[in-house]
Amino acid sequence: MASPGFRAVLPGALCYNRRVGEADPAEDKRQLVVLEGVRKSFGDLQALRDIDLTVSAGEVVVLIGPSGSGKSTLCRCINRLETIDAGTILIDGMPLPQEGKALARLRADIGMVFQSFNLFAHKTVLQNVTLGPIKVRDIPKAEAAERGMALLERVGIADKADRYPAELSGGQQQRAAIARALAMDPKLMLFDEPTSALDPEMIKEVLDVMIELAKEGTTMIVVTHEMGFARSAARRVVFMDGGRIVETADPDTFFSSPSTERARDFLSKILAH
């Protein structure tokens, strides 16, 4: 969250207190995530080369591209799970802070869902969901549990509240992980290949939850191979290859008439079956 002093000097920051997702045309112009000239290397491998990307409040942006194209790295840079070598990342107008308390506060406002779920193995599903609210937001335990149960209800696994992650199916674990992220009332949700580790039957139950979130106006950045989701829920599709953003378009345009040869080639390969 921006400090009051910082808000005052930001021209576009007049409606900060509005919750993400409330229908307000002015809100849509609020730039929640701004990346400029972002570069990142792992040793000799250039994972990200001069990435520019802006995501407005309420937008659902889907990042697609072949393996190794940098889309997951990009997603992870946004809450600084990966540090960047050059460029700037602004979240809600503020540059990403260095590792420390300020970064922790910022991360609390950004929900993240991982490919491998990463539920806390030693805690029950409900404890997973309430840990952040209790320890980061200082919400009383009873209240956190009540809200946690409501969230588990919403993702359809309230009956698993007292189970441990290992006792759940992959799809249930991922829905629990989404509930854990939502429990922090994030203004932005990052999904890093949320369905890639799931059986086909379980993919739908997770995508259903995500589509519901998108409909409610949650700002989402989604790295996925689920073209169906991209088509139905994305406002924009960002196609990446070799660490660059090759093409950005609305889903209809992107899937029917991609403008770059690389995107056409990629789509022909994944949509052939």
């Binding site: 922790a104 991360r107 929900g111 491998s116 779920f117 990463n118 854990r180």
Partner: peptide, 23 residues
């Protein structure tokens, strides 16, 4: 402890000492 556990802990806003102690 799987790396993802600490990442998930940081992602919900726990500080490093908290993620160490709680997760």
């Amino acid at each position: 402890v799987a790396r993802g556990q600490a990442e998930a802990a940081r992602a919900i806003g726990l500080t490093f000492p908290q993620s160490l102690r709680l997760v």
